[in-house]
Nucleic acid binder design. Sequence first.
DNA 1: GCGCCGCATGTAAACGTTTTCATGAATATA
DNA 2: TATATTCATGAAAACGTTTACATGCGGCGC
Lengths: 343, 343
Amino acid sequence: MSGAQLSDHTVTKHTIHEVARRAKVSITTVSRTINTPSLVDPATAKRVSAAIEELKYYPDTHARSLVSGRSRILGLIVSDITNPFFPELVQGFEDIATRQGYDVLVSSTNYDSARMTLSVRRMLERKVEGVAVMTSEMDDHLIEQFARRSVPMVFLDVGTPGEHISNIVVDYAMGVNEAVAHLVGLGHRRIGFVSGPQDLLSAQARRGAFVRSIEAYGIASDGRLIVQGDHKVTGGLDAMNRLLKLPERPTAVLASNDLTAVGMMRAVRLAGLVVPRDISIVGFDDIWLAEFTEPPLTTVRLSRRELAEKACGALIAGLSAAPRPREYGIETHLVIRESTCPA
Amino acid sequence: MSGAQLSDHTVTKHTIHEVARRAKVSITTVSRTINTPSLVDPATAKRVSAAIEELKYYPDTHARSLVSGRSRILGLIVSDITNPFFPELVQGFEDIATRQGYDVLVSSTNYDSARMTLSVRRMLERKVEGVAVMTSEMDDHLIEQFARRSVPMVFLDVGTPGEHISNIVVDYAMGVNEAVAHLVGLGHRRIGFVSGPQDLLSAQARRGAFVRSIEAYGIASDGRLIVQGDHKVTGGLDAMNRLLKLPERPTAVLASNDLTAVGMMRAVRLAGLVVPRDISIVGFDDIWLAEFTEPPLTTVRLSRRELAEKACGALIAGLSAAPRPREYGIETHLVIRESTCPA
DNA sequence: GCGCCGCATGTAAACGTTTTCATGAATATA
DNA sequence: TATATTCATGAAAACGTTTACATGCGGCGC
């Protein structure tokens, strides 16, 4: 009988009232069993839990958020989810957030400020309880919108900790120094650098660290050896081509990120040269791909897991009133593979 | 004065009531100006809009969802966001969803069924209006939970369209045929295949397509030439090593996905051979990386953009009562680069 | 001039929780 | 024994919307 079939599939809306009726208590008690079990008699709690189990009841998030003012959502803004650096970050962030009972609203802005504005708008509407901004296109106007609502924020390298703002500062200099030391130790003196987009603060930091490091080794930094990329493969390819055309080409080149290095390696091969015999290459980030390029890439590791942990941790800490650190440091270290060899 | 400063930052909660008061209308009228402008006098609407603008008011999503029963959230479940195939899919999906006013809750299950159960639970709690399942670890029990609530679902290749279920069927055979034709045309006869994990339906489909295609060309399919990978780089590497140890090794090998192909190429090089001179390799998916491997990878393209569009489209169509297609087809096509050459 | 209809607007009831406050019972304190 | 204190529970208000229903008003056909 189709009527019977239909009612098989019909679901009574399982609200807190149903549970209450079933357990013969008030809805208040049900709510308490879920949220503050210490306030309810163990025997009653058991009865309520049984009813919940039976009905497969779970509270309506919207109703809950409406009255409690807490959405249990965290926002995560990245610049380009297509860059292998970010999925790992997203994954780690989600892991941790989920474990703490938070859901994550991810947004990839594609370096586009209109998109960014839209993301912020959406996050505001969903009343996120915290936002991690892992990109630099965030303008003050948008920051203010979160600040105004006392939403904790955490930034990467952007560096103005404040009431609700934490900052993660990556020690780029550390890894870059290790890389330069490694190269110098191998006898390299003409060392080039392919930077990222100049408006990206983290890219600026990487470049700055390189210049300082080079000079620390008594090598006069040569402007012609520093060319601009875009943190993508094609940018690295173009940049390396320019470097190769130099009258005196570098014997080693550092990249601002691994994608850039991949493009650079391709440019070298296209020029009929081989890495590392003719030119050594060092990347930055240590994305999974670095292990599988040809040859495997020597690179500076920036742990995504650690980044995710600190970012998420900062946000969740920011939700409690307790005093908390406003700055989190992250180290970077050289990982030596096969894209470098003596000059 | 600190008091003054403080009040600078104080925000009055901008509710619909504030707007109403400001525009001298009832909250109903405000609601209507936002949701069904046709029902309100243009002059009034203008006044209301002005008030909204002034207060930078936007409706509270939770309250809205609570009463309307619509969350404006779509769920997207992928198996591994770390696989470059998926970020592009996620990006496309988000683009489209956002444009339609939906937010997206992304979940990467890492091939782990416990995680999957958790994701489903979270999505149910957030009352997603539709779920796209781009992985095969979905068991019937979980599917039923969505079905019970009439949540539209769309699957990839899993193939049991129903009341609320749409299915996207990828024409793997098409691309695989093109690849085999290409190889046979180049004179290859001993053609190998590295499959994906066997419990993945899409991997099974790819393998099946290969076997049928080979036979269509009158080549007896040789079991030893088909070895199993895991859709990751390392699996491809191992698999290719096994293939290379064969008394009569294949002159060309198809991979079940590009990551596998990357591993295979590495194995070939490690064995002191060169692609494509000694062995031709064809990938599957055409992830961005395929263009930048050494040599650039000949592969079968499966458009992520199209996949995202169809998946998202199916969900949104499923929300209206109108009859809609239950099956969406996607073609695949060979992209010839430099990892293949005459036998 | 009367009833009717459509239009613009408003009133009030939901939606499903959390939370404040009140109540009664049981236990400890004097 | 009378009074305070804790403990377990419940009643009802609030959260900020949408929406079903009601109202008043001007125009139209007759």
